[in-house]
Design a protein around this nucleic acid. Structure first.
Ligand SMILES: [Zn+2]
Ligand SMILES: [Zn+2]
Length: 649
DNA sequence: AGCACGCCGACT
DNA sequence: GTCGGCGTGCTC
């Protein structure tokens, strides 16, 4: 009898391919194999046993002699694929970590596997850390979600180390592995350095920027169990751990855990913990609203980690009403900046808008210059003297005459971006030494260096300066437009503003004297601003939760967004309606749309959006039936699904 | 994802 | 005439 197996290839295909296993070949589920595919060869994972079909099958070329994928990881991969509506093959690729490739198989299987010694973990806990650690340790033997609720400066790393030490002490086989998931690549190297002091031989780093050699070494050590602590970015979730016993999600509120329409790594980490029946620690000083909701519902365990010297360094928060103001920088902010600089201290100004001006408009005919591919205005960048589209790559030289009416007066520049903010600051304060930290910069290290050397006294940024840095001289933070983040169609806009303020408060004057935060807003009486100003965290969460409850938004429902796009407006519009028509009535499902997407024309394509609201917590009704609903839409229509979306572009 | 196949516009 | 653009379909 010929044996047949179904193999998962690391291609973006949501199906398996059947192969014959030759008589003398030993193959088990989970094995890595090389197979012929088309006129090429590929690596894949034996996913299940198959039946002999009528079709003539090719044979498995050979098995790669490595420890195969465990059943629980397969279950996890299948769940992630189904829930997030992504092809299973993508998960094969992430499991293999870009390491199992045809040209380097021998570098994987012929390496001597020396067993590395496990070093003693050294740590010191203060009483607050000890309490938190004791509380977490109670839950180490089963699936549980623990919120470690504490400030950045409260020494969470020490708590992690103590919990990890306890885990190893109770692990008889000495195989336990711990995954620490971080939101951004830049953060990994800091923590890796810190952890290597403790366990020089047993730390593995994982993220997309590793060199092929480092990647291979980390992957092998994760598979063979030499790596005990794995510090990684989101893709580290899918690696074939030998014996994963604990997951720690650091800064669980961070938006980087979900990238665009892709899976949410923080949420998937919880699923992995559930499948592996292991504990997961979510750590943050400003937890997600959803996390707080789950704490209140008794689903998550709440462990508080208090800061030792809290109270003394809370900044003073001043709210400035900009409602009828014609200026970008209020008199209050100006006075404070001037004062701070005179005292030889540093200022940070935050404005989430790149470029110089939001749009350019003709003074005579009022025509505004927009992108040819997208339905948005072009942003003026003064340094380049160009108008750029922030949603595609379109850009033009700044025109000297209006293309609409040939008027040769200079175009009027409307709105403010960080370049213009910098210019105004320099005009207002002659001895300002400024630097920009913008989200389109590749590295901020040189700027941070200048800040630390005090060669800069005003930092202007679109984002909060790289985490994990302390600036003792930074005593004033100004938020130029607090309303901006509340209006950009983001489910977590209010939360993000709160997080920003919190980080900023922690940043400002952490050491020497009391810092000041100035918030400029057009709506100073809003409840959110009020809760922020008085740092009433519980009040903030209560207000936000109540507004979510009223709007039936998450965590009181779950969302799935469908973005339908195509080059023809009519066909795209028609296809969107067709999809909605195909969705059956269901008492736990509400359908909104189709409506033109917030970006209704992007990159040369018309875009419509359908929003599905699901009231059943665990139902996969949409995931299971979507293929049926979209079966008949034309081939030239593109569909993107965003499960649990956070922004609504 | 690749890669082949095929159909239409524009250029020697 | 044919060269090459990409839209479409298939890979066990
Ligand atoms: Zn004009
Ligand atoms: Zn554009």
């Amino acid at each position: 009898m010929t044996r047949v197996v179904n193999v998962l290839l690391s291609l973006p295909i949501n199906r398996l391919f059947s192969y014959v296993v030759e008589e003398d070949v030993k193959i088990a589920i989970g094995d890595y194999v090389i197979v012929p595919f088309g006129n090429k060869r590929f690596t894949g994972i034996v996913w299940q046993y198959g039946d002999n079909t009528k079709r003539i099958l090719k044979s498995i070329e050979r098995k790669i002699d490595l420890h195969g994928v465990r059943v629980k990881l397969k279950v996890f991969a299948e769940w992630v694929s189904q829930y997030n509506l992504m092809p299973l093959g993508i998960l094969a690729k992430m499991i293999m970590g870009g390491v199992i490739k045809l040209n380097n198989i021998d570098k994987l299987i012929n390496v001597p596997q020396e067993q590395k010694e496990i070093s003693q973990i050294n740590y010191q806990l203060n009483s607050e850390q000890q309490n938190a650690s004791d509380e977490i340790i109670k839950h180490l033997n089963t699936y549980s979600v623990i919120l470690l609720d504490g400030e950045t400066g409260s020494g969470k790393t020490e708590v992690y180390l103590s919990v990890i030490a306890k885990l190893y002490a109770t692990d008889k086989l000495g195989e336990a592995q711990v995954l620490i998931l971080l939101p951004e690549i830049i953060l990994t190297s800091q923590l890796v350095k810190r952890m290597r002091l403790n366990m020089p031989e047993n730390i593995a780093e994982w993220h997309s920027a590793l060199t092929p050699k480092a990647r291979r070494s980390s992957w092998l050590n994760i598979v063979n169990g030499n790596a005990k602590i794995i510090i990684g970015a989101r893709s580290a979730l899918f690696l074939p751990y030998k014996n994963l016993r604990l997951i720690i999600v650091d800064e669980e509120h961070d938006a980087s855990f979900k990238q665009g329409a892709a899976y949410n790594a923080r949420d998937m980490a919880i699923i992995l913990a559930k499948i592996e029946v292991i504990p997961i620690i979510l750590s943050s000083a400003t937890p997600l609203l959803e996390t707080i909701y789950n704490v209140k519902s008794g689903n998550y365990i709440h462990v508080r980690l208090k800061k030792r010297f809290s109270g003394t360094d809370l900044p003073q928060i001043k709210v400035v009403n900009m409602k009828n103001s014609k200026q970008w920088i209020s008199d209050e902010l100006f006075e404070y900046v001037k004062m701070t600089i005179e005292k030889k201290q540093q200022v940070m100004l935050f404005l989430n808008r790149r470029g110089y001006a939001q749009l350019a408009m003709c003074k005579k005919c009022g025509s505004k210059i927009s992108c040819l591919n997208c339905n948005i205005w072009l942003t003026y960048h003064k340094k380049k003297n160009r108008l750029l589209c922030h949603h595609c790559f379109y850009q033009i030289k700044f025109p000297e005459i209006c293309t609409n009416c040939q008027n040769n007066e200079p175009l009027f520049l409307y709105g403010i971006g960080i370049e213009r903010l910098l210019e105004e600051m320099v005009q207002l304060i002659p001895n300002a030494r400024t630097a920009i930290i913008s989200s389109d910069q590749k590295s901020v290290d040189n700027v941070l260096d200048l800040v630390l050397k005090e060669e800069i006294n005003i930092i202007i940024g679109t984002q909060i300066i790289a985490k994990g840095h302390n600036f003792p001289k930074l005593t004033l933070v100004g938020i130029i437009n607090a309303d901006l983040s509340l209006e950009n169609s983001d489910l977590r806009a209010a939360e993000k503003t709160y997080q920003l303020l919190h980080q900023v408060s922690g940043r400002s004057g952490r050491f020497s004297e009391r810092g000041t935060v100035i918030i400029q807003t057009r709506d100073p009486s809003s409840k959110i601003i009020d809760a922020l100003q008085h740092q009433q965290r519980d009040l903030f969460y209560d207000i936000e939760l109540e507004s979510r409850r009223k709007a039936n938004m998450p965590p009181f429902s779950r969302l799935i967004a469908l973005i339908i796009s195509g080059k023809s407006h009519i066909i795209t519009h028609k296809a969107s309606h067709e999809i909605v028509k195909n969705i059956p009535c269901h008492d736990k499902l509400e359908v909104f749309g189709p409506s033109p997407a917030a970006l209704n024309f992007l990159d040369g394509k018309y875009r419509y959006r359908i929003l599905l609201k699901i009231y059943d917590k665990n139902s996969l009704f949409v995931q299971k039936n979507l293929a049926l609903w979209i079966k008949n839409i034309p081939k030239n229509i593109n569909l993107v699904t965003d499960v649990d979306p956070i922004n609504f572009f």
